[in-house]
Design a protein around this nucleic acid. Structure first.
Lengths: 227, 227
DNA sequence: CGAATAGTGTCTCTTAGACACTATGTC
DNA sequence: GACATAGTGTCTAAGAGACACTATTCG
């Protein structure tokens, strides 16, 4: 076995939300070299006695103020090409899905944090430091795929939501139009996806809509299909 | 930003094959502490100037003799709990799917390499060192899921194969019985999954079967469904 | 009233799964 | 001949997508 060599280990975050009917991602402006002053995904080094997920959660808290909230956080992939960072950093990327209400907190590290539409960043790779364009791209594709077979779209919604709001999440993430009537039938027929709360709202205008809460299902049977 | 601390970075491999109609995984007996003498997944440290995928390919070559062959190799997940290895190792796990013909090569590192049925290892977690039971479990689940929507089952087959042989792969990985007639219809109707070579074989007994090669499709439309 | 959104019903087409049947080899 | 596997056809039930229709609010 070859002699071990110590590399640096960090986590990066792809924090997604749906805002103004568009999929948006949290970016920060880098305060140190390399890529000082450029836009990047939030992230930081893993502490010696820290689990990877804990490190990602800590970064998320530092950048958004989100701590033990109803946030979905999952490992995305690990990026370790020798040239991706001159300091030889291997980065474990995490994907976070957060509700719209979440504002980047103007704290110590996060003073420069802001939401940016994903479509703009994906168009031109050079807008993000390191290989963060690739990481963002992988994260968005993961999110799009997971909306098909998991109830994760609810992670973008408030605690209580209407089926119309849930549909707008799908439309924003998939960048596609969905028939409201078929969507409604599909969601209410998929067992465990959503649960009626009994309350109603008119915040969408038009006829009052029932409010729902996320159901117990982990997987959707049958899945929602991308148009 | 907290001061960076150097951790050790390694790759571990979940190498799967279908042998004797069962899903099997490559294990080695550890020659050094910790867990010396116990069964583990093959793996090793990443070299300073090496990409992660290159490291995984190198390990695969050292353990199986498979180098630039028709092998599927993809990143699985990264495991970094502080207690998973007393040396504080973060490990990027890779999943490899190889054809049956592959024999573990009796080389330097791999003298102890052998195939073991996955079912036996999943039953009792203590049979594998470190958190390798968890890694194996994640790898098997990934393989099972990917057979649904990708043509990856062909990675377990020889260059040319019959539809019956392909079905046996699905049956072994999913541990399920599949109707041979519906399977045949499904595979031949899914565009780009397999391509006729023109040749026939009788190696399965019975009526001669057409031989196929893997097709160009990356994704299966519609997907194969797990029973 | 009209405009907007919520929610239901109906029709057609595709596909999964069950399974009868035919084809072609070996023993 | 019996037996095995290959390959096709046919039926039924379920779901996707298109879209007509009704319900309930606001202005």
């Amino acid at each position: 076995m070859p002699r071990p060599k110590k590399l640096l280990v960090a986590t990066d975050l792809v924090v997604l939300t749906v805002r103004d009917d568009r999929l948006q991602v949290l970016t920060v402006r880098r305060g140190v070299e390399p890529y000082k002053g450029e836009a990047a995904l939030p992230g930081g080094f893993v502490l010696p006695d820290e689990d990877l997920l804990d490190a990602a959660e800590r970064e998320l808290g530092e950048e958004t103020g989100l701590n033990d909230l109803r946030v979905h956080l999952e490992q995305l992939a690990t990026y370790g090409h020798p040239d991706r960072d001159p300091r030889r950093v291997v980065s474990i990327a995490y994907l976070a899905l957060v509700p719209d209400a979440t504002d980047p907190v103007a704290g110590s590290d996060a003073a420069t944090a802001q939401w940016t539409p994903v479509a703009e960043l994906l168009e031109r790779p050079e807008q993000l430091a390191f290989d963060h364009h690739r990481i963002l791209s992988d994260g968005v594709e993961r999110a799009r795929a997971k909306l098909e077979y998991s109830p994760l779209a609810t992670a973008f919604c408030a605690e209580e939501f209407t089926i119309g709001e849930l549909r707008q999440v799908y439309e924003a993430v998939w960048d596609a139009d969905i028939d409201p009537r078929n969507f409604h039938r599909k969601v209410s027929k998929t067992s465990g996806f959503v649960i009626e709360t009994g309350a109603m709202t008119t915040r969408q205008g038009g006829r009052p809509a029932k409010l729902y809460r996320r159901g117990p299902a982990e997987l959707l049977h049958p899945p929602m299909l991308r148009p």
